[in-house]
Write a protein that binds this DNA or RNA. Structure first.
Lengths: 221, 221
DNA sequence: CGACACTTTGACGCACTTCAAAGGGGGTGG
DNA sequence: CCACCCCCTTTGAAGTGCGTCAAAGTGTCG
């Protein structure tokens, strides 16, 4: 485990207290699993009886429509939790974007812990609340122009990956396109355009430098 | 209060049990308030310290971008709860679409009840989970074609309002357009087109008959 | 009955998609 | 270590679905 990952894992772990912390609980009680790139972590319509936490690597959740179109629900990086959905079955599937290490815990275990421990219950609620907020932001992105969507996506990723101004995207253009409701060509063209207007620089196709955050924010309305 | 509303209110009220029910709690402890059409229930950036339940009428939540574009986050009809957002402040505002009667309860009251009563905590979690699922469906709508969005919207509303096959929409074309990320002209044209293809009938502009649910579902992919 | 707001319809323009082909860039085998 | 290959990305050209601008139709409330 690299130092960077250790830091990231600790940032949600509170020092010591009477009540248990969901993150700590997972570290103590959770099972560790590894998934190879593009491997499915869980499938659409499978039982949603596990909660996951990303230790390293990146994960995407997605849903495929009957005509083959794919929509990506979200991306999850080290420290993020995923897998909680409302009903008994998943309505999205989850796949590893890169090689991924996760911790997983049974939902029922977490639920019974939450029943006895108030702080666990509160954290669970906060977690779902955060996921709701993320999804609402996703909605806001999807009604904007291509430039605004791509700019918003870059800013979101820069925040999440905690990169200063240089983001190393773990996902392909196709993943980005399916997240933003655009085609790969439009994503590519938009990135080129942002580079030409000096808002970003493309080191490689996946490594992007945010040259002018202000300009990106302005595009994000 | 009409019989229809009485039935709708009861469908989430469990008979009698040891633990308190959030819906019952609101009926017992909640404060009743009335809002006129287009009146603001709460504003963006206001403290999110109240939880609401629609008794009658319809509510929309919305966010306005700096350039004036408005995005509607969701519609809420009798029986629906709204107002829970992740942070301390609302990121959406809520307005009455029609005259609206709501019950409201302090979030802190609900939280302290949840701390003592397991079922309240579970219901709170389920409520946020349902809101998350709704928002995810919203995301799925926004990446589709205009026809699919409008068809999906009609099916969603028919479900929510519990109308057999004739839906009385409480919201304007502008509200629909801002929910679906389209213009009023496109919404109007699409409805006309759906009528011409015998999928729906427009009794009046707000009263729509679903003539062919299969066709609408097919459009919904 | 007339005024006003909302909805529908029409004509045109543009942003994004589609179809097509030409770059890279990373990994493997020789 | 180089060369080749495959896949991902970029770029180009043409098509189209939705937006924009404009005006007519419709329902409602004073």
């Amino acid at each position: 485990m690299t130092p960077v990952q250790t830091i990231r894992e600790n940032h949600t772990a509170y020092p010591s207290r009477d009540h248990a912390d969901a993150t700590d609980l997972m570290a103590q009680m959770g099972v560790r699993m590894t998934f190879a790139k593009d491997e499915e972590i869980y499938g659409q319509d499978e039982d949603a009886d596990l909660i996951y936490r990303v230790v390293s690597g990146s994960v995407r959740t997605s849903r495929v429509l009957s005509d083959g179109r794919r929509q990506i629900g979200g991306f999850y990086v080290a420290g993020d939790m995923f897998g909680f959905e409302n009903g008994a079955a998943h309505t999205f599937s989850a796949e590893a974007i890169t090689q991924v290490k996760v911790l997983l815990i049974k939902r029922s275990v977490l639920a019974s812990l939450a029943a006895r421990d108030r702080t666990v219950a509160e954290q669970l609620l906060a977690l779902v609340g955060r996921e709701l907020a993320r999804t609402q932001e996703h909605v806001m992105l999807l009604v904007k122009t291509a430039q605004e969507r791509v700019a918003g996506f870059l800013l979101e990723m820069a925040d999440r990956i905690q990169a200063h101004d240089e983001v190393d995207l773990p996902m392909s253009r196709q993943d980005i396109a399916d997240y933003l409701g655009l085609t790969i060509e439009t994503v590519s063209r938009t990135l080129t355009h942002l580079e030409n207007s000096a808002a970003i620089a493309l080191r490689t196709s996946r490594r992007i430098v945010l040259r002018n955050r202000g300009a990106l924010h302005r595009l994000n309305s």
